[in-house]
Design a protein around this nucleic acid. Structure first.
Length: 106
DNA sequence: ATAAGGGCACCGC
DNA sequence: CGCGGTGCCCTTA
């Protein structure tokens, strides 16, 4: 059960510290970009805090997106990793962005 | 089994 | 560039 969600969590865990990705990439890594929403659901459900850096997952447009515990907290976590967030937006997104290929790679 | 919601992505205006 | 509407998948009630 929760096979899908588990996969999502696994991908999320593979996101290096100080880097971020978007739901779509994770979805693509799982096979389809349309799974993006489902991905968000999986993270929202309640992954394993700290073990799964769901805060490193943002929107495809570079927006912070949402966060179960509050966007503010998410931004705080990102900042703590050196990720610059301005106006609910990630700066230098492409610089820290992790492609689906990277996620698929183990 | 059916219905509704959700941490989205994409296209069009 | 910004906003709004639509479509997909999965999960929970």
């Amino acid at each position: 059960m929760m096979d899908f969600g588990d996969s999502v969590l696994a991908m999320t865990e593979k996101i290096p510290r100080g880097r971020v990705t978007n739901y779509g990439e994770i979805a693509k890594a799982l096979g389809d970009v349309r799974l993006a929403r489902a991905v968000g659901q999986a993270l929202k459900k309640n992954p394993r805090p700290v073990k799964v850096p769901c805060h490193r997952v943002v929107c495809s447009d570079g927006r912070i997106g949402g966060y179960s515990r509050g966007v503010s907290e998410k931004i705080k976590l990102l900042s703590a990793e050196g990720i610059v967030v301005e106006n609910n937006r990630i700066l230098d997104l492409e610089r820290i962005f992790v492609s689906s290929s990277e996620l698929i790679k183990s």
